[in-house]
């Protein structure tokens, strides 16, 4: 564990908490893409199946459980409890265009052709693009609430910090995982446009509004 990974995980945790609190406090999931949340639930489920096969550390186990519970909790709030507030008219990204290529890629490029390893690989590929329905939704409506922007910023920062973690581990531990690194770069790059808007608008107290 190094500082970059710890901060990355905390940023990830913060994102998940911000999202849950936003929905809970406002009793509304307006502006949030249910499709991205479904993809994230699939990501955590596919990746954290190793909870039952291998023990890494108490930290690792607890965090995995937290992400799984928070993810399914978010789905429950969006699709059951506050279903009426779900903005499905603007949430129209076709997720099969993300899921199918990730399945194929995971079958073709993986470390080991075993069920758990392919599921892990699939989750890494899918996570890198899971935010696209949310970004598509923001671009479709042309704006995002500040709290949604904070959520996106924390979520994007998480994988960006993991990139530093991987650089550190490469030099300090001679450890590297090309699948995770390349997917992590793709994932972080997808947020760059949003980061720019966040820094130039949201941090100056303005609402995130895309130019018409």
């Amino acid at each position: 564990m190094n500082i970059f990974r710890l901060l990355g995980d905390l940023s990830h945790l913060l994102a998940v908490i911000i999202l849950l609190l936003k929905i809970w406090k406002t009793r509304s999931c307006a502006g949030i893409s249910g499709r991205s949340q479904i993809l994230f639930a699939a990501v955590y489920t596919a990746r954290y199946l190793d909870l039952v096969t291998s023990y890494i550390s108490a930290y690792n186990t607890v965090m995995k459980i937290v992400f799984l519970v928070a993810s399914y909790g978010t789905l429950y709030l969006m699709f059951l409890k506050f279903k009426a507030t779900y903005d499905h008219n603007h949430d129209t990204f076709r997720i099969e265009f993300l899921v199918l290529p990730c399945v194929i890629l995971a079958l073709l490029i993986n470390h080991d052709f075993s069920a758990l390893e392919i599921l892990w690989t699939f989750s890494i590929y899918l996570e890198s693009v899971a935010i696209l329905p949310q970004l598509f939704m923001v671009s479709k409506t042309g704006e995002a609430e500040s709290i949604t922007s904070h959520y996106l910023f924390a979520l994007g920062t998480y994988r960006g910090l993991y990139l530093f973690n991987w650089i550190y581990r490469y030099y300090a531990e001679d450890h590297y995982d090309l699948i995770a690194i390349i997917a992590g770069i793709v994932q972080t790059v997808l947020y760059c446009d949003f980061f720019y808007l966040y820094i130039t608008k949201v941090l100056k107290g303005k609402k995130l509004q895309l130019p018409a």
């Binding site: 990974r5 990830h12 190793d50 890494i56 965090m63 995995k64 993991y162 450890h175």
Partner: peptide, 10 residues
Amino acid sequence: PETGEEHDEL
């Protein structure tokens, strides 16, 4: 990592 190595990150 080597084949079969555990994934120790989240």
